[in-house]
Nucleic acid binder design. Sequence first.
DNA 1: TCGATAATTCGAGTATCATCGAAATATTGA
DNA 2: TCAATATTTCGATGATACTCGAATTATCGA
Lengths: 122, 122
Amino acid sequence: METLDAVSALGALAQEHRLAVFRMLVKAGLDGMPAGEIADELGVPASSMSFHLAQLNRAGLVTQRRESRSLIYTADFDRMNGLLAYLIEDCCQGRPEVCAPTAEAVSRAACCTPPQKKRARK
Amino acid sequence: METLDAVSALGALAQEHRLAVFRMLVKAGLDGMPAGEIADELGVPASSMSFHLAQLNRAGLVTQRRESRSLIYTADFDRMNGLLAYLIEDCCQGRPEVCAPTAEAVSRAACCTPPQKKRARK
DNA sequence: TCGATAATTCGAGTATCATCGAAATATTGA
DNA sequence: TCAATATTTCGATGATACTCGAATTATCGA
């Protein structure tokens, strides 16, 4: 991940509502959640939530797919892993012997693997 | 680390200059760097840099100590580790079996351990 | 085709961020 | 005590960010 991508991803997560959304979407896994449900759950007006979802989307941290009338948002686990890897490498940069093994472990372990597919929502 | 602390730390890193400063300070290790040198290195006016350093400081990602006329800034490795741990837990939240071992590995390895003390600057 | 549902885009208001020169503060050495 | 150095704080400016109601777009079922 490039530095500018990291800045953009960090900025997307650096907001209370958006961090909450992302946490929620991680929990939801590959099924994702419709915009309206996210907004309801967090008690934020739909138009405000739409703004935040667009930011997360632009930063690549969530993807969007239409399912009938709903737009389903899903966390992008690869992207989040990319950010984590960047931060860990960044953090240890110039001193790889200190924690490169850890960075390596993280990237090998593919930390943010989406959980196995769940049942379709009722 | 609490969610609001994470938002604040993420916000501090979500800016090109500040991310560059943090990278630089990580490289510098416990010795840290004086504000002026940081500003020079990045080609940013001193007053602008002071603003950014204050933000990093407020977010707890750097500490400040006076050494004669200079203010030396140092990366706070514990804080950065806290942020990484938060993000990794966050990312895997509700599905610990997927990557808890990785989070554990990261925290055990103390990824952002400051490198051993270097020579005093000339 | 029409009404209902789900969401986004628009517009306007307020707030916070980023920038940078000038002025103020802290420290040192002579 | 005074000039020089290192840095911050102040003030002003322009740019983004956040909020949310109203208007618009897309889709579905009858």
